[in-house]
């Protein structure tokens, strides 16, 4: 279970890192005055959030690779196993979708600053 959480955290870390990069990377440009940060960034971050949701809901998080590995190792995959896998996948989808909402939140904050 512990390792499981670690992996989930790792998966969470990618989009969060991208979010941070999105928020902070263009700031220097804005300081120099060549980039309308507060006009454009909210929408870009918002779009990124939606894009993340799309990825998060379509990605199987390696389930297929895992199943193939299991099949190659001649392990019987029962319906329960599949259910568990889909449950996990759904769980990860939901996590990514919530991170998408986090993106939205950040977008709003920047918009209202």
């Amino acid at each position: 279970m512990k390792e499981n959480t670690k992996v989930i955290l790792r998966y969470i870390s990618y989009p969060i890192a991208i979010l941070l990069a999105l928020v902070f990377a263009p700031l220097p440009l804005w300081f120099r005055g060549i980039f309308p940060y507060f006009q454009v960034m909210p929408l870009i971050i918002f779009f990124s959030g939606i894009f993340l949701m799309v990825i998060g809901s379509f990605w199987d998080f390696g389930a297929r690779i895992y199943l193939n590995e299991l099949m190659e190792a001649r392990i019987k995959i029962t319906d329960e196993n599949l259910k568990a896998i889909h449950k996990k996948e759904l769980f990860m989808n939901m996590i990514y979708i919530s991170i998408g909402f986090l993106y939205f939140l950040v977008a709003f904050i920047i918009y209202y600053i």
């Binding site: 199943l67 319906d79 889909h86």
Partner: peptide
């Protein structure tokens, strides 16, 4: 693979995917 049957979770995923 060969063994997939759609179950409730898969169904939920499909619906979410459609919305997204």
């Amino acid at each position: 693979g060969k063994w997939v049957k759609m179950n409730i979770y898969l169904l939920a995923r499909k619906i979410i995917q459609a919305i997204v």
